[in-house]
Simulated assay, not measured.
Amino acid sequence: MRRTIVFAFTVLVGLFTGSTQADTSSGPATAAQKATQQTGAPQRGTLYRVAYRGNTSYLFGTVHVGKTAFYPLEPQVTQALTAAKKLVIEVDIRNTGAMRQAIMRHGLYPDGQTINQHLSADATAQLRQALRRSGTPFESIVRMKPWMVANLLLVQEMARNGFPTEQGIELHFLAIAEKQKKKVQELETADYQLSLFDSMSDAEQEAYLVENLHELASGEAMKKALALINAWQIADAKALDAALLEMQKGENASDRFLQKVLLDQRNPNMAKQVEALLKTDKNSFVAVGALHLLGDKGVPSLLQQRGYQVQKLY
Rank of each mutant, 00 (worst) to 15 (best):
I5R: 08
I5E: 15
F7E: 14
A8V: 13
F9E: 15
T10Q: 14
V11C: 13
G14I: 02
L15P: 04
Q21N: 10
P28S: 12
P28I: 08
A29T: 11
A29G: 10
T30F: 06
Q33H: 09
Q33L: 09
K34S: 09
A41T: 11
G45E: 02
L47C: 03
Y48T: 04
V50W: 00
Y52H: 15
S57H: 06
F60A: 03
F60N: 02
G61H: 05
V63P: 08
V63Q: 11
V65A: 06
K67A: 15
A69I: 13
Y71I: 01
P72G: 09
Q76W: 14
T78E: 15
K86D: 08
V88H: 07
I89P: 09
E90S: 11
E90H: 10
N95L: 13
G97D: 13
G97P: 10
G97F: 03
A98V: 05
A98N: 12
A98C: 07
A98S: 15
R100M: 12
L108W: 04
D111S: 14
Q113W: 05
Q113P: 02
T114W: 04
Q117C: 02
H118A: 12
H118M: 11
L119W: 00
S120D: 02
Q129W: 03
L131P: 03
R133M: 11
T136F: 06
F138I: 10
E139C: 06
V142H: 13
R143Y: 05
R143A: 09
K145F: 15
P146H: 07
M148W: 14
V149H: 08
A150F: 01
L154F: 13
V155F: 04
V155L: 03
E157K: 12
Q167M: 10
E170I: 10
A175E: 10
I176W: 08
K179G: 09
Q180P: 06
K183G: 09
L187N: 06
E188K: 08
E188C: 04
A190Y: 06
D191I: 07
Q193R: 09
F197I: 10
M200C: 05
S201L: 04
D202M: 09
A203R: 12
Q205V: 01
E206M: 00
A207C: 08
L209H: 01
N212V: 03
E215W: 07
E215K: 11
L216S: 03
S218L: 07
A221T: 00
M222H: 12
M222D: 09
A225Q: 02
L226F: 08
I229T: 07
W232C: 03
D236L: 05
A239C: 06
L240F: 03
L240N: 05
A242E: 14
Q248H: 13
D255A: 14
F257L: 11
D264V: 06
M270I: 15
A271T: 05
K272D: 08
V274G: 04
L277H: 00
K279V: 00
D281N: 02
N283D: 06
V286C: 02
A287H: 01
H292Q: 01
G295M: 00
K297E: 02
G298F: 00
L303V: 00
Q304V: 01
Q304M: 07
K312L: 05
